[in-house]
Nucleic acid binder design. Structure first.
Length: 804
RNA sequence: GCCGGUGUGUUGGAACUGGCAGACGAGACGGACUCAAAAUCCGUUGUCAGCGAUGGCGUGUGGGUUCGAGUCCCACCACCGGCACCA
């Protein structure tokens, strides 16, 4: 009898051995070997410790990485810490502990937890975004962006979280509230560092064509970038010494433009000043609109408001009629030109506005009934009331009108994106200092690159100032400096970078984490980049994933990295819900702590259950009972030691074994871990039914199971006296010829109903199948006395006889 | 409103290019072992009718295509995720 399966001692033993043997160190010594770079999103080391969600992604890529090593690849599977950020800072403020200390404690805790689960990370390449040796390069990248004009300071209305006291990027505002804390977000005008991600909109869109991302991710990024093709059209406003330019995707409807609308923040209002007869009303409306947060604006989306500019009109350039100009907050200053031409007949918003304020609706595309509702179909309509466009389709009219406008100099084709520039400043302490100084004479001047890293100065006062400035602003000694250009007096930028900075390029640093001269060695980058497989959460699709693609593409453009895209393949895991099918959270009291599970059933069973619980990309409720089922399975595997017997390997056994090899190998590649594990369970069930297993069969099973449950398999490998370490053993290859059987079972149906099952030779063809109707007694009995109308024969599968 | 996804036993979920629905796990029930319990092992477990062999029904709803539909097509319902006054 085998000893009991003691997971605690076994797991500790092998984790120590792997550490001592540096089993999972990526090899930089031979850069010609086939490589595999697997990546998971490096964790934010929060005080709460590891969550059961982390291991889902980690285990999945751990399985793939372990399998790749066994397949002979040089594997890089690294880990690091995304450690700057608000939660740590808030914790530090609350408990009066320096964030540096908190961060170190949390990282140590996380590392210990991860090691206990047995991930095959190359810990020698750990990176930490709060390390000066690391953020030196984060700052360096920022300076390159600055030098190329992609970083600029702007006085803009930003999203301001009233609870974190910090500015937010558009991507960080979710449903009108702060993505991180759920606090109310208002508009606030502040001078902020911005990154011109919009310059990269087209490149980011095009890049999606060349990568293997799950379709969901591509679609979400495309929607977020939001490309739309249209035209700019200039409208003459006699009272204004400038034209009023609009962006429209429907230049074909220009003849139907019966009024214009500008956003409340539009500069034309200030330029016209008292020429607007009801200026006081207009300014009051502007003030009212500015008070609203974005959230309130969208909430009142259906009920349109607005005021007309009295005494001001615009000229429709095609009809030469005078049309009124309105101000309304449904037109956003931040998109297009902040002004639109309103075509109520063919746009739902304009239609609603026209109905409310009783403005004329002129049909220019026939096909609907525009007095009842806006007709927006662009496929079927024909142009009417549109002069030279009459009779054309919408597509033809679009082309013709753009040509006409261009020729006359009153318009041009134009592409617009919904994507906005990235607000890059944070008024907080725990982030990378922005390496710029402000000099009265020279303006914004970058810190000399040799001065990097610009270290975050030590302070115990992390609270933002009363006027919502970073705590760094209080450190006068640090702030006051000299201008690197002219040597005169200068002040440092006191805002810090957002959390997304450090995580936008960490996968590059993993390639060469200890390099002190360059961001990473060229040859190493040529070898390891791009990341072959990146798994992470859907919630990062329009944040981290887009930002890091932007930075990477920029680094490619300036010749720093060798590839346009950072990630070849992107997959995504589903969330793990609480046992009550609700999102896990402290307040709901349904949080499962991985430590408890690992202690009770072991890391091997925990890993297995995380993969077995359901489809990898779907949200699944946790079930501790289900997890215990995986533990039971591992015990059954363990006890296979007791039924080892050397017997001749029958065809049935060979077929079982190779069927499992194929299923497990294929399913892991497709991330169908649940069915891969089920195949191993089925195999073990069959083995117990047969009553014995040979050493060779057990050997193969251990190899296949190793990526999922590495400790128990390595222990059994040693107990069985197999050669070397299991983690260094080659992955088995399915011998397809072993799957072929002499006889196979087919199904006999009468009118689609299953009536019998027959064993037939595996080589049977269609004619042979059809002959069964006359030659096989079972089939003959089924059709006796019936008239056969049709015979459908699928060789090796089924025979369906239509007979009455 | 738009885009994407999902809907299968008591339950988590399987089902390759249309071909045996419910693999594998959980739970439940029955049995063996035990003084007893736990653990383990064996068996049963979609539903209705029948002692039974067997037969009817069954993959959100309603239609359709097909010898054959969970899978394909049309219409609809419910839930989840993303975007949303983007001109």
């Amino acid at each position: 009898m085998s000893q009991a399966y003691e997971h605690l001692s076994i797991e500790k033993k092998w984790q120590d051995i792997w550490d001592a043997e540096q089993a999972f160190k990526a090899d930089d010594s031979d850069l010609t070997k086939p490589k595999f770079y697997g990546l998971i999103e490096f964790p934010y080391p929060s005080g709460a410790g590891l969550h059961v969600g982390h291991p889902r992604s980690n285990t999945a890529l751990d399985i793939i990485s372990r399998k790749r090593r066994m397949q002979g690849y040089n594997v890089l599977y690294p880990i690091g810490w995304d450690a700057f950020g608000l939660p740590t800072e808030n914790y530090a403020i609350k408990n009066n502990i320096h964030p540096e200390i908190v961060t170190k404690q949390n990282i140590d805790h996380f590392r210990e937890q991860l090691k206990k689960i047995g991930f095959s990370f190359d810990y020698s390449r750990e990176v930490n975004t709060t390390d000066a040796d690391y953020y030196k390069w984060t700052q360096w990248i920022f300076l390159q962006l600055f030098k190329k004009g992609l970083a600029y300071k702007s006085e803009i209305a930003i999203n301001w979280c009233t609870s974190c006291n910090v500015g937010l990027a558009n991507e960080e505002v979710v449903g009108g509230v702060c993505e991180r804390c759920g606090g109310e977000v208002i508009r606030k005008t502040k001078s902020q560092w911005m990154l011109r991600i919009t310059d990269y909109a087209q490149k980011l869109l095009d890049g999606l064509e060349d990568v293997d991302f799950i379709e969901k991710v591509k679609t979400q990024q495309r929607n977020w970038i939001g490309k739309s093709q249209g035209a700019l059209v200039k409208f003459n406003v006699p009272e204004y010494n400038d034209n009023l330019t609009v962006f429209t995707t429907r230049p074909d409807t220009l003849f139907g433009a019966t009024y214009m609308v500008i956003s409340p923040e539009h500069p034309m209002i200030d330029a016209l000043g008292s020429k607007i007869k009801n200026l006081d009303v207009v300014l009051a409306y502007r003030e009212e609109a500015q008070k609203k947060s974005d959230f309130e604006r969208t909430e009142t989306a259906k009920d349109k408001t607005g005021v007309v500019l009295e005494g001001i009109t615009a000229v429709n350039p095609l009809t030469n009629t005078l049309i009124p100009i309105w101000v309304s907050d449904y037109v956003l200053m931040s998109y297009g030109t902040g002004a639109i031409m309103a075509v109520p007949a063919h746009d739902e918003r304009d239609w609603a506005f026209a109905k409310k304020f009783d403005l004329p609706i002129i049909e220019v595309v026939a096909g609907g009934s525009v007095q009842e509702e806006a007709f927006t179909d662009i496929q079927s309509g024909t142009m009417v009331n549109s002069g030279f466009l009459n009779g054309m389709s919408v597509a033809e009219a679009k082309k013709a009108i753009i040509e006409y406008l261009t020729e006359k100099g009153i318009g041009e084709a134009k592409v617009n994106y919904k994507l906005r520039d990235w607000v890059f400043s944070r008024q907080r302490y725990w982030g990378e200092p922005i390496p710029l100084v402000y000099c009265e004479k020279c303006g914004w001047v970058p810190v000399d690159e040799h001065e990097l890293p610009l270290r975050l100065p030590h302070t115990d006062d992390f609270i933002p100032t009363a006027d919502a400035q970073s705590p760094l602003a209080k450190l006068e000694d640090w702030v006051n400096t000299t201008c690197p250009k002219c040597g005169g007096k200068a002040r440092r930028e006191t805002d810090t970078m957002p959390q997304w900075a450090g995580s936008s390029w960490y996968f590059i640093r993993y390639v060469d984490p200890h390099n002190t001269d360059v961001i990473a060695d060229k040859e190493k980058m040529n070898y390891w980049l791009p990341v072959d497989w990146y798994n992470g959460g859907m919630e990062h699709t329009t944040l981290h994933l887009l930002y890091s693609r932007f930075w990477h593409r920029f680094l490619y453009d300036i010749g720093v990295v060798p590839t346009k895209e950072p990630y070849l393949k992107r997959t995504s895991h589903g969330m793990i819900l609480g046992e009550n099918s609700e999102k896990m959270s402290k307040s709901r009291g349904n949080v499962i702590n991985p430590d408890d599970i690992v202690a009770e059933i072991g890391a091997d069973a925990f890993r297995m259950y995380e993969m077995f619980m359901g489809a990898f990309d779907q949200a699944i409720p946790w079930s501790t009972k289900g997890a215990r089922g995986c533990r039971r399975f591992l015990e059954r595997v363990w006890r296979l030691q007791d039924i080892i017997k050397e017997e001749p390997i029958t065809q049935e056994r060979e077929s079982m074994l190779h069927g499992m090899i194929k299923k497990v190998s294929d399913d892991i590649e497709l991330m169908k871990f649940n069915t891969a594990i089920a195949a191993m369970m089925t195999y073990v069930n069959d083995i117990y039914r047969l009553g014995s297993i040979s050493k060779e069969e057990l050997k193969t099973l251990l190899v296949l199971l190793n990526p999922v449950s590495p400790h128990i398999t390595e222990e059994m490998w040693e107990l069985m006296g197999f050669e070397g370490r299991l983690y260094q053993t080659a992955w088995p290859i399915c011998d397809e010829t072993k799957l072929v059987k002499d006889e196979i079972e087919i199904v006999v149906q009468i009118c689609g109903k299953i009536k019998a099952k027959l064993m037939v030779p595996a080589t049977i063809d269609k004619a042979g199948m059809e002959k069964l109707v006359e030659e096989n007694d079972t089939v003959k009995a089924l059709v006796a006395g019936k008239e056969i109308k049709k015979i459908v024969a699928v060789p090796g599968k089924l025979l369906n006889i239509v007979a009455i």
